[in-house]
Amino acid sequence: MSPLDKITLVNQVQPWYGEIPVYGQYTFGVAGERFFREIKDNARIMGTVCNSCNLTYVPARLFCERCYNKLESWVDVGTKGRVHTYTVACLNLDGSRISEPIILAMVQIDGTCGGLVHQLGEVTPDKVKIGIPVEAVFKAKAQRTGSILDIKYFRPC
């Protein structure tokens, strides 16, 4: 005879509601600080080069994840790239319908092993293909804050 057999109060068993009352405040880091300053101040996308692995990382990183060496060679990688893959997002985070679907792409920056996740603009979903060339469109300098959103979107070029 265990209490498990005697539970008759299931409808009265209620949940307790709660939340985690904290939020995140993130510094961009040693490499990130410089990477985002270049975007903010100069509308430039920077990478760091690993000469031993022959890779250029975008966004720029402090170290190579493969050989674990410090990366000290910074290069301007331009603002052009190709759509590596993409999706057309129709739902908001809360599951509601987005009125104007958003095209989210992984943009591989030319000459690098890396890329940026960003929106595509000035294009409709039916015109997007994997591999199409795109370029970054920056906000006006006065509106840039040092954020990935300083790039408005990438557009076909």
Partner: peptide, 14 residues
């Protein structure tokens, strides 16, 4: 320095 913030909207019913 540059920084960014994220305010999670996490509500639970335990």
């Amino acid at each position: 320095v540059l920084f960014t913030e994220w305010r999670p909207n996490l509500k639970y019913a335990w």
